[in-house]
Each structure stands twice: as structure tokens, then as C-alpha cells.
Amino acid sequence: MSRAVFLIERAGPMTTIQDRGRFGAQRYGINEAGPMDRAAYRTALAALGYEPGPALIETSLGGLALRCIQGDITVALAGGGFRLTIDGETKGSWCVATIRAGQRLEIKPGPWGSWTCLAVAGDIVAKPWMGSVATHAPTGFGAGVLKTNDEVIIDNAQVLEAREGLLPFPVTGKPRDHVRVVLGPQQQFFAPETIDAFLNTNFTLSGEYDRMGVKLTGAKIAIEGALDMPSQALPRGSVQIPGHGDPLILLSDHQTTGGYPKIAVTIGADQDGFCQLRPRQNVRFSAITPDAAITAARSRAKAETAYLDRLRRRTNA
């Protein structure tokens, strides 16, 4: 059995091991965690021939540098416009490359994007928590946050030379500065003109952005009447309005419940693109019907499935 070992030489603060996520336990206060850009997660794995499920490394604008201290292994990077180098040689942004014993791999933020996924041709050794290694950063449950001097052990490491090279870039991989939402479920807490203002404001992502979510600025959203709502389920993608009036968009490490009203919930099809915006970039929202949101989910899934199937079959021969 071949093994590869990475020694983390430098890890940005939001570098974690993630798998697809931990589903079905929000009723116990346990959220999904999982990748921020879920399509990027699936893409990085498909580039190595895998179906979704295995663990990979997610990093953000802080980037990542690691040295392969044992074994040779092929890796794939997808998500955001990051740059992958091996021993200083640029391999590309969305790409497959092989790192050999002694070589140094670096991921740096490029011109755009906030999150990227590094998949490996092999099995990352990580202890699951409740059946999943997905890291919930606030509690550390899951495989955990990666820090300088940590080692990542990969069993069944493989070199897949036929897969090396650049990946075709899907249009859906871009950041989305126009995000579709379904209004509610607490529309009763907002005056009609407040909802209009929410839909007509060019918001800006603040620097308060981590795996739990991001705060937007641009217009204070006023809550009508007393804030007396009992806590209730807070799904991923919710646009929650706390007392300060700046919208909070809840993302992978969101709390499972919250007592602030949700003016809207972003549709699943637009969440990956939203995550790839950076602080200081703008975003606006438009409302669609619940049925149109389902149509959007289905058409996005169809296009992505075709793209991932092509990636899995792809060789550079």
C-alpha cells in the first residue's frame, strides 16, 4: 500500500479537511459543515475520477503551503481563481498535477474567489465524527482545522499522469454578484418598502466572513414591531436580519437555529457562486418563486452532472 504524507508548512486560518458534509442531524443541533463551494468540492474529486464523498482540503484567501515528505501523489485543485504551484512552477488554477517526495506545493489566492478545494488521489486518513470527517470550524468537530506543522497522511496514494493538466472551466464556477432568493419565511417582520429596499440595494460583503457566514453592508434592514420570534431552524443560505439591521448570510458552519427573522433564503443553485465573492465585492438579490427555485436547482444539477461526467472520463492522452 503506498502512502503519501504532507507536512503543512503554512496554513491560512480557514484551512480545513472537508467531505460532503454531515446530513440529517440538524434536529440535534449538529449542522452539515462541508465545503463552502460544494460544486468546487465535487469538481476537484471528479478531476481525479471520484464520485462525491471522500475527504479533501479546503482553503481560503490565507492560502496553503505544504511539503510532500513521503510518497508521490496526484492532486486536483478547483474553486475560485487560486494559483497552484509545485516547487515554484505554476500548474494553473483549476488543474491536476503530481507532487513527488520532497516537493513543495503552494496555493495562493489569485485574482478572484474566496474558497478552493485540493483533492488527492488517495484516502486522507482522518477520524470521522458522526460518520463524517467534515470540519465544523467553531467547535472543531470533524477532522479539524489544519495548522502549521500538522501532517496529512494519505493512504492508497496514486499517481494519475493521464489526468494531469488544466481542467475545462464551467461558467457556473464564477462568483455570483446577483443572487436569487425566495422571500420569507418571516416576511411578516418587514414592511413592504423594506423588502423593496432589500431587493434594490447593492450590498457589499464585509470583512466579517468565515465558514459560518458573512455580514453584508449597504442598507439597514429594519424589523417591524417587537423582536419576539422564538428560535427556529436556520437553513444554510438564510438571509438573517439581526437587531443591527445588516443582513447575515448563513453558510456551511451556520448555527442550526436562530431567533432573528429571515427576510429571504438564497437558492441552492446560487450559493456556491455567492461564496466565491470576496469582502468588499458587491451583491444584489432578486426574488423568484419557490417553484422557480426548484426549476433552477434541477437545471443546475443537470448541467453539473454532465460536466462532472466529462471530467471523470477525461484524460490528456
Partner: peptide, 9 residues
């Protein structure tokens, strides 16, 4: 109340 593309409250 429908919630986005994946829930009913």
C-alpha cells in the same frame, strides 16, 4: 411557508 428550493416551514 415554502423555504427556498429545499424546505417547507
Amino acid at each position: 411557508v415554502p423555504v427556498a428550493d429545499c424546505g417547507l416551514l
